[in-house]
């Protein structure tokens, strides 16, 4: 999706919407900054993390990325702050902090 401009509702009038509001361009959700409604942010403590990857496996939005150093990190552009990663982490290496406290 790189290089594509994110279309918003204001690119459409009732005249140029697709029949049945079908989105013919698949996968364009990756263009959308779904992380902006997050209230809690996951914070990783690398001291506790043993790189098991459970957070990556369980993230329902695929928002956890594998870094070059082997650690996993939430991509805050997409992370909605659900807290599943923190919940499944056996070593309690992820804690959820309210955005306004950061």
């Amino acid at each position: 999706m790189a290089g594509k401009r994110l279309k918003t509702a204001y690119d459409f009038t009732w005249r140029n919407m697709e029949v049945g509001n079908i989105v013919t361009e698949a996968g364009n959700a990756s263009l959308r900054r779904t992380g902006d409604w997050r209230t809690d942010r996951p914070i990783l403590d690398k001291e506790k993390c043993n790189k098991c990857g459970l957070c990556w496996l369980y993230c329902p939005d695929g928002a956890v990325e594998l870094l070059e150093d082997g650690y996993y990190e939430p991509d805050l552009y997409y992370c909605k702050g659900c807290g599943i990663c923190a919940d499944v982490c056996k070593r309690e290496a992820i804690i959820m902090i309210q955005e306004e406290e950061i």
Binding site: T8, A9, Y10, F12, T13, W14, R15, M17, V19, G20, N21, I22, V23, T24, E25, A26, G27
Partner: peptide, 23 residues
């Protein structure tokens, strides 16, 4: 692949309904 049944927030729902009504 394409998306059928995407959600329609307030900034597009009315346009969707008017398009449906005219059609």
């Amino acid at each position: 692949p394409m998306t059928h049944g995407a959600f329609g927030p307030p900034d597009i729902y009315t346009e969707a309904k008017i398009a449906q009504e005219v059609a």
